Amino acid sequence: MDRKYFLNSIGMSAAAFALINCVGCKKTDGSSSTDTTGPTGVNFTLDLSRAANAALLSNGGSLVSNGVIVAKTMVGAYIAVQRSCTHESYTLIYQSANSRFYCSNHGATFSENGAVTNGPPSHSLTVYNTQLKGNTLKVYS
């Protein structure tokens, strides 16, 4: 095998490996890239006295339930938005210190009211209503 053929083979193998890995790592939540809207018919409750929901007892805490990010803002208000970015459905992260939702894939950001604050998304997040009664937080459309 000559040197040119050998180097060409290694380059093609590396390119194929990179392509296969990129296709496989796109999303971790199993949603399709065309599903950029939030779930519809949302209507669930969270018992804040349960350990599984303890993150919502502290300002800045958040959790994901039923395809929705539920968060307690730094000022103590409960908010809820769709879990996935409106650009390509990557999972969002609530960044309480910055009062925003962040997509680590393309750097998109959304305000706490769901508005796009940094592209590439062109439309806002679906926002859900929240209502606290005692230790029960209701999240609904």
Rank of each mutant, 00 (worst) to 15 (best):
E88A: 13
Y5N: 14
F17D: 06
H123Y: 10
N8L: 15
F44W: 04
G67P: 05
I10V: 15
G119I: 08
T28A: 11
S111D: 03
N105D: 09
G114Q: 07
S31Q: 13
V64C: 04
L48A: 00
S9W: 10
T28H: 12
C25V: 10
Q131I: 04
G114T: 05
N8W: 13
A54M: 07
P120G: 01
V42K: 04
A51S: 08
R3F: 12
A80Q: 03
L7K: 14
T117E: 12
T45D: 07
Q95W: 00
A51Y: 06
A71I: 05
M74T: 15
L63H: 00
T91D: 14
S49N: 05
T40Y: 11
N66F: 08
Q95A: 00
S104N: 13
N59H: 06
N59S: 07
N113F: 07
S124F: 09
C103S: 02
G38P: 09
L92P: 02
A14Y: 11
T117P: 08
T117C: 07
G60K: 00
V70Y: 04
A14R: 10
A54F: 09
G67Y: 06
R83S: 10
A71G: 00
T34H: 12
G24S: 14
A52R: 10
A14T: 14
N129D: 06
I10L: 15
R3A: 11
G61C: 06
T40H: 09
A80D: 03
N129V: 01
N53E: 06
A55M: 06
C103M: 07
S141R: 08
S96L: 03
G11V: 09
V139K: 01
L46H: 01
A15P: 06
V70T: 03
Y78E: 00
K138P: 01
N129M: 06
N43E: 03
V42W: 06
L63G: 03
L125M: 05
C25L: 13
T86Q: 09
E112I: 12
C103Q: 03
N66G: 08
I79K: 08
L92A: 04
T34L: 15
N8E: 15
F110M: 01
N53G: 02
M1A: 11
D47A: 02
A15I: 13
L19M: 13
Y90Q: 10
N53I: 02
N105T: 10
G41K: 04
I93S: 00
F101W: 02
S104P: 08
L57I: 03
S124D: 14
V70F: 07
T91R: 13
Y94C: 00
G24N: 14
L46G: 05
L57Y: 02
H123V: 12
